[in-house]
């Protein structure tokens, strides 16, 4: 049996992309290998770590748990697509300023989850931030500075 191929095309970080890939290509594989954007990470096999989180139509999802073809026609944003030219997104800047990362492996997913969280709930409490990031695992920071970063970014984002 030959491979079943799918035409994948969607909006990606503001531009449009398209390619023919096997049906069983995961969205994260498509982003990393076909599009060559490696900011989105793969940290597990069980859909639990959140290193692969991206946005689809502004909502955070695990790109390791979707087929690329399921994103057809959608608006896909990855960590590479959130800065404004050379100017970091307020969430990126806050992680930078508050020591919200150590090795950085979890950071792209953390930032993408945190942006949706703050957009949805600009006045999120510390508890709500901790619960809102349940799907993102960090083995370095102990989460404390991540929460601080998200709180700082929430303030900056609210002022805009």
């Amino acid at each position: 049996m030959g491979e079943n191929m799918a035409n994948v095309s969607f909006t990606f970080n503001g531009g449009s992309v398209g390619a023919e890939v096997p049906d069983n290509t995961l969205l994260v594989e498509f982003i990393r290998e076909t599009l060559g954007k490696t900011g989105t990470h793969i940290g597990c096999d069980t859909s639990q770590c959140g290193a692969c989180v991206i946005h689809i139509n502004g909502e955070s999802v695990k790109s390791c748990t979707m087929l690329a073809v399921m994103a057809n026609g959608q608006d896909v944003t990855t960590i590479e697509g959130i800065a404004d030219g050379d100017k970091m997104h307020p969430m990126q800047a806050a992680f930078h300023e508050n020591h919200g990362l150590q090795c950085g492996f979890c950071t792209p997913g953390m930032v993408m989850s945190a942006i949706e969280l703050v957009t949805r709930n600009p006045a999120a409490s510390e508890q709500e931030i901790r619960e809102g990031l349940e799907g993102n695992i960090c083995r370095c920071t102990g989460y404390h500075n991540i929460v601080k970063s998200v709180q700082a970014a929430a303030q900056v984002m609210a002022e805009k």
């Binding site: 859909s47 959140g50 989180v53 909502e59 955070s60 999802v61 695990k62 748990t65 979707m66 989850s113 949706e116 969280l117 809102g132 349940e134 799907g135 993102n136």
Partner: peptide, 9 residues
């Protein structure tokens, strides 16, 4: 249920 990303799908 699970986490936000699981609930989004």
């Amino acid at each position: 249920i699970g986490d936000r990303q699981v609930r989004n799908r």
